[in-house]
């Protein structure tokens, strides 16, 4: 039984695509057959983060319009087994997505026995974002510890509970998870940044993970390697924890407190 998971936020630039790539890769690493779909038609990014931009022949919109079949359009990851990417179209706009078209693609992916279908949502609350969340079974709400991001996440949570297929048909509601990204404990201590508790109180949904602000994320994006493959980095480890929690394991939260810096590292800024 395939699980459709949307990674969404409302606000742009909070780390949806980074998180989709990391969590999708993590699920595949755990042995689950996973596909990540880029719903950001017109602003194709996922293929860059996944490092497969030079292998894109057909895209999501081609499949919807019947110009290619799924097998031609899915890009198999070279590093991780069981991992596929369905890239967005760069030359179209969001109106190319229709509910019927998306449904057909998802049905075909279910027939191909994917365990997880990760939908990387575009920012905003218009057609693209609605299409990405419409068929979701679970939702990962990506949020920065900052008031405007939290408010936009709240808006998206409202849309999940009113505009999704599950809401429309009165089925069991979409399972919601909070993923807090770019978290910086030292700035929280200084009062510049909302704390985990602040965000949890406002959004009132279960916490899936807290990804610390990390140099490794930018480096990973630019090199086309999902950051979860970087075992050394805090961000990579935090994403692994989040994937384990998504799979139902109980994992303690890490990187929530400021690291005590030694004298040497303080002098040399390690």
């Amino acid at each position: 039984m395939s699980k459709v998971v949307v990674v969404t936020s409302g606000k742009g630039g909070v780390g949806k695509t980074t998180s989709s790539a990391a969590i999708g890769t993590g699920l595949a690493l755990s042995g689950f057959k996973t596909v990540i779909i880029d719903f950001d038609i017109g602003l194709r990014n996922l293929d860059l983060i996944m490092g497969c931009e030079r292998r894109v022949v057909y895209d999501f919109v081609n499949v919807i319009k019947g110009e290619s079949n799924l097998n031609q359009s899915l890009i198999k990851d070279k590093r991780v087994d069981n991992l596929y990417v369905l890239p967005a179209s760069q030359t179209r706009d969001k109106d190319a997505l229709t509910k019927e078209g998306v449904q057909t693609v998802l049905d075909n992916l279910r027939e191909m026995e994917f365990d997880f279908i990760i939908c990387d949502s575009p920012a905003g609350i218009e057609t693209g974002a609605i299409m990405a969340l419409y068929f979701a079974d679970e939702a990962i709400i990506t949020t920065n510890p900052e008031v405007s991001s939290v408010r936009d996440s709240d808006r998206i949570l409202g849309m999940l509970s009113s505009k999704s297929l599950r809401a429309e048909q009165g089925l069991e509601p979409v399972r919601e998870h909070l993923l807090l990204t770019r978290y910086d404990p030292s700035r929280v201590n200084r009062g510049d940044m909302l704390s985990v508790e602040d965000v949890e109180e406002i959004l009132a949904i279960p916490l899936l993970g807290v990804i610390p602000e990390s140099q490794a994320v930018l480096k990973a994006s630019n090199s086309g390697e999902p950051v979860i493959l970087d075992d050394e980095s805090d961000a990579g480890k935090a994403y692994r924890d989040a994937v384990d929690r998504l799979l139902g394991k109980e994992v303690d939260f890490r990187f929530l407190t400021e690291e005590k810096k030694g004298l040497l590292s303080r002098l040399f800024g390690a």
């Binding site: 709240d154 808006r155 409202g158 849309m159 509970s161 009113s162």
Partner: peptide
Amino acid sequence: RSGQQVYADSGDLVIVGSVSN
């Protein structure tokens, strides 16, 4: 949630939960 509107026409309204910004 933010952006949602609830209206109790000619009656009282009870919210078992919070009302967001």
